[in-house]
Structure formats: structure tokens, C-alpha cells
Computed example of a mutant assay.
Amino acid sequence: MNFISPVPMPGPDAVAPEVYRTIYPMPMFTIVPTEDLEASKDFWIRGLGFIDLFTMPGQVTHLRRWAFQDVLLVPGSAPAEAPGFATSFSCVLSQIDEIAQACEALAPGSTIGPEIKLWNSLELTVITPENSRVVMTAARPHDEQSLENLRAMGIGVPD
């Protein structure tokens, strides 16, 4: 099977791809308003593992992790509470604890989890300084329980 994705196949020894620095037409991106561009940029870089692809001071910071994981930080008011929706970014299993520790060091109490989900991922929820809800999700290798969950959801899987 051929996949068009920077996300590696799930497994305990999956290796995260390098940060993707090439410019491309973005098929999807997230815009995050923030009252403090520098503080937000610092958290997303040191906590969540993004890079500053480019910055127009006071106007926009374009952050990226893997290909197609783009975030634009822009000046604006943050909601008083974290939004009910979340933006999810793929990572590998070995990165979940590292990201949780980095975010907690920068903003104690900013993480929830990690939690194993029925759809066979391990997910860490992070509330960023601008009250965005970011879910770092790592696919888990299939085991018998995850295959039973998929069958219960009506998804055909091999026996």
C-alpha cells in the first residue's frame, strides 16, 4: 500500500519525521489569535515541538512541525476559556511524555492525559497560553482489544 502522509506507521519504535521546512500550498492550517505573540510562539516551539517557519513581527508567525501541520499565530483576543473544539496533530508514541513534560514545565496544569482512545490512539490534550485546545495524538499498534473495538464500531478488520 502507498500512503501520502508524513505520519509513520504505528508502532512502539516509530520514528518521528523531521520538521518539514519546504514551502508548499497548504491544504489546511489553523489560525490561533493571541494577545502575546512572543509568549505563544515560545510555548508552541518549546512545548509542542513546532518551529518558526517565518515571522512578520507583530503580524503573523507561521509555525510548523511535520508536513501539513501548520499553525498561524496572529494578534487577537484569546477566548476566556478553551474552545470546545480541538486541533489535533500527529506525533509518535515516544513523543507524548516528552511533550507533556515540556508543556508542564512551561505552563503547569496545561496538560490532560495522556489517554488511550477507542480508535486506538494515545492522546495528550494541551491548553495553550491563548486557550487553544491542542490534541497530540499517537497511533498505537493494533492489539486484540483494539481490533475488537473496531469490529464493534462496524469497521471490517481481518480475523
Rank of each mutant, 00 (worst) to 15 (best):
L118R: 15
V126T: 04
P141W: 04
N2T: 14
V71I: 15
T55C: 08
P158L: 10
I31E: 14
L150R: 13
D13C: 01
L73T: 01
A80T: 07
I155D: 06
A105L: 06
W119F: 09
T55I: 00
D97R: 11
V157H: 09
N120H: 08
V15I: 11
M136E: 00
P129H: 10
E38I: 08
R64W: 00
R65N: 10
Y24I: 04
L63Y: 05
P6S: 14
K117T: 11
D13Q: 14
G156S: 12
A107Q: 15
V134I: 15
K41H: 02
P57N: 03
M1T: 13
I116Y: 07
M9L: 13
T61E: 00
R140Y: 04
P8Q: 07
W66M: 10
E104D: 13
P6R: 11
D97S: 12
P6W: 12
D70V: 01
A82W: 01
A102D: 06
L122I: 02
I116E: 14
M136D: 00
A80W: 05
N2W: 13
D70N: 11
T61H: 07
L73G: 07
P158V: 04
E115W: 03
E115F: 04
D42W: 03
R46F: 04
A152E: 14
K41G: 01
N120W: 00
L122R: 14
S110Q: 03
I45W: 05
P83Q: 14
Y24E: 12
A86N: 12
S77Y: 02
P57C: 01
M56Q: 15
A152V: 01
I96L: 10
S77I: 04
I112E: 12
G84C: 03
R133W: 06
S146V: 02
L63C: 05
K41W: 01
K41Q: 13
L73Q: 07
E115M: 09
A152I: 03
V74T: 12
A102R: 15
P129D: 08
S132E: 06
M26W: 10
I23E: 14
E18R: 11
A152W: 11
A39L: 10
D42F: 06
T30Q: 13
G113I: 03
F29G: 03
V19K: 14
F89Q: 07
P6M: 05
T128P: 02
N131Y: 03
V74C: 05
L48M: 13
E18M: 06
E148R: 15
E123N: 13
L147R: 15
R21A: 09
C103Q: 01
R151A: 15
R64I: 00
E38Q: 13
L118V: 11
G109S: 08
V60T: 13
K41M: 09
L53Q: 14
I51E: 11
I127W: 06
Q95K: 09
L72R: 01
R46L: 07
V32T: 04
V92S: 03
